[in-house]
Design a protein around this nucleic acid. Sequence first.
RNA 1: GCCAAGGUGGCAGAGUCCGGCCUAACGCAGCGGCCUGCAGAGCCGCCCACCGCCGGUUCAAAUCCGGCCCUUGGCUCCA
Length: 492
Amino acid sequence: MTLRVRNTLSGETEEFVPEDPDEVRLYYCGLTTSDPPHLGHARSWVHVDVMSRWLRHLGYDVQHVENFTDVNEKIVARVGRDGDDENDVAEHYIAEILDSMRALNLERTEVRPRVSEHVPEIIDLVETLVETGHAYESNGSVYFDVTTFEEYGKLSNQDLAHIEEQGDPDERSEKRNPADFALWKAGGVDTDAIERHRGHDHPGTPAHPEGQTWESPWGEGRPGWHIECSAMSMAHLGETLDIHVGGRDLVFPHHENEIAQSEAATGQPFANYWLHCALFEMDEEKMSSSLGNFVTVRDAVAEYGADALRLFMVSGTYNSRQTYSEDAIDEAVERWERLSRAYDDAVAALDSVDAHTKVVDDDLRAATEAARADFEAAMNDDFNTREALSALSDLASALNVHLAERDAYDYRGLREGVEAFETYGGDVLGFSFGGESGGDVTLAEDLVELVLDLREEARDAGEYERADRLRDELEALDVTVEDTDSGPTYRL
RNA sequence: GCCAAGGUGGCAGAGUCCGGCCUAACGCAGCGGCCUGCAGAGCCGCCCACCGCCGGUUCAAAUCCGGCCCUUGGCUCCA
C-alpha cells in the first residue's frame, strides 16, 4: 500500500515518491505575525501535522519547515498597539502562535525561519533573477517579469494573457506588465497599505509608524511578499521540495509566483507535490483575520480542549472546505468523549486482567485488525482523516462490545486494541489518550473520591435523594459520575 | 467575466479520480429496548438520502459524458 496524494499542480491524485527515498522535505506557508492565530489557521496546522505524523509513521525522516512572515505592512500597522516597533509586534504574535501550536499538541517543526533573518538570501535570489533577465529594476524596486517564465499560470491553471487583463495598468506604472509582481520594494513601507490595515481600531497609535528597511543593490528597501518563501525554503530544504502545503486561498498569486521566481532562478522544479488545505466557512464565508469573523485558537482550546478541536479538524478531509459552527464542535466534543472513554475503559479492563488468561475473543481481534487496515488505507488515500477516524470509531465499538458482553476479558485482544488506539489515534492523529494529571488534578481526584465515598454510603443506606444531590453537585463542577458494576467512576 | 473547489439524510460529513459489494460509511441529534434504585455510559435496534437540475452512455451511475442552476475560494492582505 503506497501513499497517494492530490497534487494541485497536475490536478490528479498521484503516487507519492520523494526525491530521497528516506526523507521528505516539506514546506508550509506560515502566518504573518500581525494577528492572533485563529481556528482557520489551526485547521491547516492540524492537517499538516497529521500529514507529517503519517509520513513519519511510514518511515520517512520528515524535514518540516514553517516560516513566520515577520515583515509586512500589517505588522507595521500594529506598532504602537502591540509593540514598540515591528520586531516587537512580531515577537508578541510569534509567542502567541507558538503557545497555540503547543496547546494544539502539534509536533514541533524542524525549522521556523523568519523573513527578517533571511534578507541576505532574498537579495541573492533577486540578484540572480535580475542577472538572468527574469527581473528588472525600476525606481529602486525590482519586479519579476512574468513574460519571461513560459509556464506562468501552470499551478492555478490560468492563461497569462487573461491575468494581464485583470491587472490595473495604472496601479504601478513602473511595471512592464500588469501581472509583474514585486520582488523588492523601494524605500520604506507603503503608508497607504498601513492605513488600510489600521482601519479604525487603533486609536492613539503614531500617525506615521516607521517600517524597517534593508540595504540592497537597488538602495534601501523591503522584500516583496512572495520571494520570502522561495528564499527560505531553498535555504533550508534545497532547490526542490517534495511537498509544499498551504491554504487554498494562496494558490494564486502567492504560490504561482513562488513557482515562477524559484524555477526561473534554479531551472529546477520548485515543489513536486502541491497540497492545498481548504478553508473553514462560517455563515457561508471563510473565516479570516481580515473579515474579523474568527475564533482564536487560544479561546477555542480553553473552551473545548485540544483533543476535541483536533478531532473536529480531522473529521473533514484537508482539501475539502468545512463548515464551522458551535453545533459542529459540540459534536466533535461528543465524539471525543466516546473515543477517549472507550480507550480509558479498555485500559482499565486491561489492568484488571491476568496476562496469562486463556480467553480469546476472535471478534475483537478481527475487528482490531480490520480497523488497522482501514486506517492505513484511509491515510494512504490522500490523508483521508475522516475515513481514518471512522476506523478508530469502529475499533472503539469493538472494544466496547468486548467489555460489555464478555464476562472474561481477552488480554492480548485488549492489548492489541489499546495499542492500535495509541498508535493511530495518539501518534498519528495526535490525540492525547489517557490524559495527564498534574498536582492540582491529583488533589481534585482525591477530593472527588472522597465525595464518592460519601455518596456510596448514602446509596448503601438507601438514601438516594442525598446520593443524587452529591452527584448533581459534582456534575455542576464538571465531574461526571457514572455507576458501574465495579463501583462508581468519574470523569473530569 | 476568468480560474479553482464544491452541491449527498434534521445536522455534520466520507464515498465520486479506478461505474456494480452504495437500498450510500463513521458520527451527532431523535425514537424504542437491554442494563440501572434513578441518571449516565455502554450494548441492541429504529428513524432520516434514490446522492443540485436536465439529458446521454452502459447490462449497471452518487460515481463516466454534455448542458444548466446555485454556493464558496482566488483574480487585492489572507491558512
